[in-house]
Amino acid sequence: MNRHLISAADLSRDDALLVLDTAEELAQIADRSIKKLPTLRGRTVVNLFFEDSTRTRISFEAAAKRLSADVINFSAKGSSVSKGESLKDTALTLEAMGADGVVIRHGASGAPHRLAGWVRGSVVNAGDGTHEHPTQALLDAFTMRRRLGDLEGRKVTIVGDVLHSRVARSNVLLLHTLGADVTLVAPPTLVPVAVGTWPCSVSYDLDAVLPKSDVVMMLRVQQERMNAAYFPSVREYSRRYGLDGDRMAQLPEHAIVMHPGPMNRGVEIAAEVADSVRSTIVEQVANGVSARMAVLYLLLGGSEPAIGKGVSE
């Protein structure tokens, strides 16, 4: 059975550390004049993007190209997909093209899981609906590790729309695997009712959590939530759950501030915070390429994937 990276839970602790260690080595490539390795020569990676996400697509594209893979970008807009072709038919098309790896971004939770059942190649989830975004969690963990060292026992606070956030889901799972203590902070309307079953704690009070945090990760507030009674107003949200300069001052000296982007400056994060030395937001982008190179290498570089999990159903 082939292996895929669909959920952060697909990675054992050893798998996760292997990805992070590999990413650390591959990060050097970015500093060389020749930013390319021959490893995936002759392999085909399809970027299958059903949602617009230029930054994630470019990151995966750069990662695949630095490993010398042939990259085919297949975006839903203007393709047969926008003309109503089903995911299954798209999958059969990819099969016919002989894709070794498929990177999929989709608005429906579980779409990568479905795809994995229909193609022979390894599937990498680049964000599915409100489910998961495992490579984002890997690049976040990679960024934390570079700034803070081992994540065992580190206190990571994730703030914002946890209910709809694939970034939060994947981070909770991966950080737990790596031994960090995660606290979710959000208005009660924006956490799942079953959050008690997750391996993390939950708080409604950002100010109480900040002084004990090594990492604060701010999640984007989606436009469509703003008028759906999850909170009374953007101003109130920002006042209670936004990270401004005063709140940042409550953090321990070594603590870092993260954001998966794109940011709403002035809503969940103040400009002075986003641009401060604590902010890793620009590093996260660069680290994204290294983390994704590591994932692609470990899934596609050998005779069979070295990480990930099979899809049983």
């Binding site: 939770s109 579980g110 609906g129 409100t130 489910h131 889901r169 009712v193 079953a194």
Partner: peptide
């Protein structure tokens, strides 16, 4: 999409 509970929270499907 499915019963709201532990599974829907994990799967990211609306409860």
């Amino acid at each position: 999409q499915m019963n709201e509970g532990e599974m829907s929270a994990a799967l990211g499907l609306r409860g």
